[in-house]
Simulated assay, not measured.
Amino acid sequence: MANGRAGELVLRERRSLGGADWLYARLRQLFKNSIVILALAAVWEVAPRTGLVNVTFFPPLSEVAAAWWQLLLSGDLGDHAAASLSRSLGGFLLAIAVSIPLGLAIGWWKPVSEYLNPFLELMRNTAALAILPIFILLLGLGETSKVAIVFYACSFPLLLNTISGVKNVDPLLIKSARSMGLSSVGLFRKVILPASIPTIFVGIRQAGASSILVLVAAEMVGATSGLGYLIQYSQFSFLITEMYAGILTISVIGLIVNYVLVTLEQRLTAWKPSARE
């Protein structure tokens, strides 16, 4: 249904603008979205070659791209990326499975909120990397400690946004639903949960970013694989182009993850009117 609605909007836009005008509008939007990135790429390429920055520590983008390609062909980049993604995705999905139901319960049932809120306020103000040594001491240097730190870092954005989403549902919607005789279960399923999804997805996107950033830092501390390990090893071995290649890989992965989550959010919230509408 969401696909059909989106397709209908695209067709309407094409008809209103005409084929050539619609293509021009799309290309113009693509240019606006990419012009700053292209400008930064140009500066990155030119600045080291003209002596504005030290080429030893800040090589041109073309050399970084060549190093990235060599890492890809050798299989090292794929192995490190796969290790990081498996850890990140494991902790991220586990946080979704635990934090969203818990956040819904805290937001909807007052007794649960009264018991758990003080503990959550204490824990959410403790930075994930600050307690990384505890995870390593208790769980070791293996995969479990890394998945656990990602789970911890992702849990609180998910929890807080889920609680906020439930508590900020329009009271008129709740009153209207109750006036129509909906049970508590029906009210929660048909009103509270759908109305909370946009705010919950804010937390999901924040957690998606945290899952990558925290993991990379954890891999720099204690790991023998992963993109964080690749960056740290390249830095200490003075393989500067490989270090920047690892950083760029993390940036691209972050963009892809955000795009996937935004697309999923648009499909699940197709009922919400857009700003244009």
Rank of each mutant, 00 (worst) to 15 (best):
L193G: 02
L158E: 04
L159T: 02
L182S: 10
V166M: 01
I174G: 05
L193K: 10
V185M: 15
V191W: 03
S196E: 00
P198M: 04
L182W: 07
L160P: 01
P171G: 14
P171L: 15
P157V: 05
L160G: 02
S184G: 12
T162L: 06
M180D: 01
S179R: 09
S176Q: 00
P198F: 00
D170N: 03
F188A: 02
L193M: 10
V166F: 01
I197W: 03
L172A: 13
V166R: 08
N161W: 03
A195Q: 02
V166Q: 09
L160R: 06
I192V: 06
V191T: 09
T162V: 02
I197M: 03
G165Q: 07
S164T: 04
I197T: 09
I174W: 10
G186D: 15
P198D: 08
G165E: 07
F188E: 07
S164Q: 06
S176W: 03
S176M: 08
L193P: 01
V166E: 12
A195T: 07
S196V: 00
I197A: 00
K167L: 09
V169T: 05
P194G: 09
A195R: 04
S179C: 10
L182M: 15
K175W: 08
T162M: 00
S164L: 07
N161E: 03
V169H: 10
V191Y: 12
K167Y: 11
L160V: 04
I192M: 01
G165N: 08
V191D: 11
K167W: 06
A177T: 05
L160Y: 06
F188P: 03
V191M: 14
V191R: 11
V185N: 15
P171H: 14
D170M: 01
P171E: 14
L159I: 11
L172K: 11
A195L: 10
S196Y: 02
D170V: 02
M180R: 05
T162F: 09
L160E: 02
R178E: 14
K167D: 07
S183D: 14
L160A: 04
V169K: 06
R178A: 08
S183I: 15
L158T: 11
I197D: 00
S164F: 03
S184R: 14
S184W: 13
P194L: 09
L193S: 05
R178F: 12
A177D: 08
V166G: 07
M180P: 02
M180V: 04
P157A: 01
N168S: 08
S164G: 10
R178V: 09
K167C: 06
D170A: 01
P198W: 01
T162Q: 04
V169G: 02
F188S: 04
I197P: 05
S183A: 15
R189T: 04
K167F: 10
G165V: 00
K190G: 05
L173R: 00
V166C: 06
P171K: 13
V185W: 15
V169L: 01
G181V: 13
D170T: 05
